[in-house]
Design a protein around this nucleic acid. Structure first.
Length: 812
RNA sequence: GCCGAAGUGGCGGAAUUGGCAGACGCACGUGACUCAAAAUCACGCGCCCUCAAAGCGUGCCGGUUCGAGUCCGGCCUUCGGCACCA
């Protein structure tokens, strides 16, 4: 019987019946938590990306299992979210119904993959058993001041009818539907991730993560060192602070600019300027995110009529408002130094504001704006001081006068978690006219998401229109009250699900502290690079917050992270239905079996790069599997034929390949370099074919080699390997076998071929004894006939020998 | 605009610390088997060249070195991140 989906079914059944992949909760000393980013149960079937992520991470986990690790490998579903709700709006099918039906389908397909998932630990985020703890988490953060409500201009997607987190706005467009994002002033819930900005940055260097991902997080957090400097408003008892990284240019300030949204604008605007200020503020509100982001857009602003007093010179400088100053960054106020900042220069030129040079550049450079560091001029006692030094001494002077201080600012904003949508976790907060904001008592959790809800989006939360949900009693005074009608961003669900897996049935607490302290952090986390800034940052934040609240004892959730690449269509383009270049795994699995599909994904690409799909490529793997199968079948049928038990040169050669393969496959698989691991297995199979062609064979040795070969293959072709294992008369299961270890002695050959170079150019190759020392090698090579033309009449100046590789003779 | 990564045969892709470029596979070619084809097995396969030798060859130009795909400087292209962040 040749390998097919029948083989797959046979072994899947056997694995299921024997419970071979059940996690051993008792034996946690050699635990290994292997996790793929869980998937969203969409209507479409499992796609190549799922296979690439789950299938190959499973191969890695299988090797670790055979190496003796107690592997915890759970699966689940990130089941709340917009697609199900949008689908419901279109078709009328309730999100709950479509989601659970999709989960059934996906689970079936995941089982066909033949992975080592232990489904006893499944987590589905849209079940009350899960989101109850989402709400619990919210309440803990609330108690600690890490969840708070504020009115803020938020990103609004007019098509999805909901607010979006900063991270969900891509180039001014909604990440999901690409509509233009606008601003809206709403009172919303935020998580205070900014409290952890510095720690999130500090822990990055020690993580075994792709450097690129760390870089993205570093940029996203955006630490910037500078100073806050206080300005007084002339004639009023109002002060405000600006944030600057260029305190050295303080003497060049000719005006200051406030963000239009800044609260003190009302107080400082003079009556004669009020009209233009109000008009300007209205105008700014209408500007879409896209226009605002455009760097080519001309800067605009208006004068408020008021003046500020320069903290050091006492000079009057006009106070303007302009939308190039962002309300959410720093203090929302900027000191303008047009001589040394491009934006200020452009603005000052347009509105005829003064430009005063205070930094002298390199000789001959008189052009403005000059944005580099230099030597201070026009700066009173700081004249002649270098920028770097001046930044310190000027702020120190301000400090003494209580007019400023050093300050670190982060680009990272707090995480906006309210969503005006239905299919999510209800926010466990009640609003009472008498008592105000009242958290739902923990013993009343979960606040269940009602089923019968009109969820057509109109800008208002669907839950607000559900009377039986929204109307409740105040837990504090018993009077009538209303529930929060928003739901939580689904990134809240995924920011701690890895903590729930080990203890998914616990109904007393989200997770048992002792248990997760033993099982976590996750040892290997694998998923798409698109989550670099959001999911991965949120998860780190929540982990740290829970640690500080005493619920766990580790600092980071994911010690080691791998991003799989993207599999493209055969045309090299991103797969999409409209392009018609999608690859449907089911079709290939039906034809070739799931192992061939998995193994092609392993062999055909560099794992972290991905690349274009190839039908020829998968055929090659099908052929390879057949080649292994024929080798095994032939060997089994000839097992009783004559055997010799000597270890001659042929055996030694095969043994070399065997152990070299063990070494390489172990090393490469560990590092997620599946393509080269499989290349080495192919070499071993080639070597076995070569050996098989010999007249005299040591069948006992050959069998050992074949058994090792099947073991090495087993993580990548698990069903097929079980089948071959059985045919070779071995006991179930190959996955209870020990992973082979290489023998260093087998890797030492008697002779090695080295390259012979003259002046760095390879002229010929020669065999030398492996144990020959440099001097001996030099003698052998210089005595060789082939060296003659290159050394005759010349002097040997230098000889470099690289053991086992080459000899380079420098002649002159 | 700023930051980062990548660029290797016809193709997918390999090359510990600078040490035989092109592993493995695809495609292609030759042979064996076959009436024939497919499948299979074996061998070959960077470019230039009739063959061999020599020469050339890891995006382009230059440098360091006995020796550079790998290190340094400058460009080009592609992809990714950030983008009025003061």
């Amino acid at each position: 019987m040749s390998y097919s989906t029948k083989t797959d079914k046979k072994w899947q059944k056997k694995w299921e019946e024997s419970g071979i992949y059940k996690f051993d909760r008792k034996n946690l000393d050699k635990k290994l938590y292997c996790l793929e980013m869980f998937s969203y149960p969409s209507g479409a079937k499992l796609h190549v990306g799922h296979w690439y992520n789950f299938g190959l991470t499973d191969s890695w986990a299988r090797m670790k299992r055979m190496q003796g690790y107690n592997v915890f490998h759970p699966q689940g579903f990130d089941a709340f979210g917009l697609p199900a709700e949008n689908y419901a709006i279109k078709t009328g099918i309730h999100p709950k119904d479509s989601t659970f039906s999709n989960i059934d389908t996906m689970k079936k397909q995941l089982k066909e993959m033949g992975a080592t998932f232990d489904w006893d630990y499944e987590v589905i985020t849209c079940t009350p058993e899960y989101y109850k703890w989402n709400q619990w988490l919210f309440l803990q953060l609330y108690k600690r001041g890490l969840a708070y409500r504020k009115k803020a201009p938020v990103n609004w997607c007019p098509s999805c009818n909901t607010v979006l987190a900063n991270e969900q706005v891509i180039d001014g467009e909604c990440e999901r539907c690409s509509s233009e994002v606008t601003k809206k002033n709403l009172t919303q819930w935020f998580f205070k991730i900014t409290d952890y900005a510095q720690e999130l940055l500090d822990c990055l260097p020690d993580l075994d993560w792709p450097e690129k991902t760390k870089k993205i997080q570093t940029n996203w957090i955006g630490r910037s060192e500078g100073a806050e400097i206080e300005f007084k408003v002339e004639g009023k008892d109002i002060t405000f602070r600006v944030f600057t990284t260029r305190a050295d240019t303080l003497y060049g300030v000719t005006y200051v600019v406030l963000a239009p949204e800044n609260e003190i604008v009302d107080e400082i605007t003079t009556p004669e300027c009020r009209k233009q200020v109000e008009e300007y503020r209205e105008q700014v509100k209408k500007v879409t995110e896209i226009d605002r982001l455009s760097t080519t857009r001309e800067k605009t602003g208006v004068f408020t009529g008021s003046f500020a007093i320069h903290p050091l010179t006492g000079k009057r400088v006009p106070i303007w408002i302009a939308d190039y100053v962002l309300a959410g960054y720093g203090t929302g106020c900027v000191m303008a130094v047009p001589a040394h900042d491009e934006r200020d220069f452009e603005f000052a030129t347009k509105y005829n504001l003064d430009i005063v040079r205070v930094i002298k550049g390199a000789e001959g450079n008189d052009e403005l704006p000059y944005t580099e560091d230099g030597i201070l001029v026009n700066s009173q006692e700081f004249d002649g001081v270098a920028s770097e030094e001046a930044r310190k001494s000027i702020v120190k002077k301000l400090e003494q006068e209580n007019k400023g201080e050093f300050r670190i600012t982060y680009r990272l904003r707090d995480w906006l978690v309210s969503r005006q949508r239905y299919w999510g976790t209800p926010i466990p907060i009640i609003y009472c006219d008498k008592c105000g904001v009242v958290p739902v008592p923990e013993d009343q959790l979960p606040v269940e998401l009602p089923y019968n809800v009109e969820f057509k989006p109109d800008g208002e939360s669907p839950l607000a229109k559900c009377e039986e949900f929204i109307n409740t009693v105040c837990p504090s005074c018993g009077g009538p009250a209303k529930r929060d009608s928003d739901t939580l961003d689904t990134f809240v669900d995924s920011s701690w699900y890895f903590l729930r897996y080990p203890d998914n049935r616990n109904d007393k607490e989200p997770f048992n502290k002792d248990l997760i302290n033993k099982l976590l952090p996750v040892d290997k986390y694998v998923g798409g690079a698109e989550h670099a800034a959001m999911h991965l940052l949120y998860s780190r934040f929540i982990t740290k917050a829970l640690r500080d609240m005493g619920y766990l004892d580790f600092d980071e959730p994911f010690l080691s992270l791998v991003h799989q690449g993207v599999i493209l269509g055969a045309d090299g383009q991103k797969m999409s239905k409209s392009r018609g270049n999608t690859v449907l795994p089911d079709e290939y699995i039906e034809k070739y079996g799931s192992d061939v599909f998995r193994m092609y994904l392993a062999f055909g690409f560099s794992y972290v790069e991905g690349g274009p799909w190839s039908d020829e490529g998968i055929k090659a793997i099908d052929r390879f599997i057949g080649r292994v199968e024929r080798l095994v079948e032939k060997f089994v049928s000839e097992e009783n034929e004559q055997s010799f038990d000597n270890m001659g040169s042929d055996e030694k050669e095969l043994n070399f390949v065997r152990h070299n393969t063990i070494k390489s496959v172990t090393h490469d698989t560990e590092k997620f370099q599946f393509n080269t691991a499989i290349a080495r297995i192919m070499e071993l199979v080639n070597a076995l074919y070569k050996y098989d062609a010999l007249e005299k064979k040591n069948r006992k040795f050959m069998k050992e080699t074949i058994l090792d070969c099947i073991k090495l293959l087993s993580p990548f072709a698990p069903h097929f390997a079980e089948e071959m294992w059985e045919q070779l008369g071995q006991n179930f299961s190959i996955f209870n076998e020990k992973w082979p270890e290489y023998d260093q002695k087998a890797l030492v050959k008697d002779e090695v071929e080295i390259a012979v170079q003259f002046n760095g150019q390879i002229r010929y190759r020669i065999n030398v004894p492996t144990d020959a020392d440099n001097k001996t090698i030099e003698e052998i090579v210089l005595a060789d006939e082939r060296s003659k033309p290159y050394i005759d009449g010349k002097n040997v100046v230098k000889v470099i020998v690289v053991k086992g590789r080459l000899i380079n003779i420098v002649v002159r």
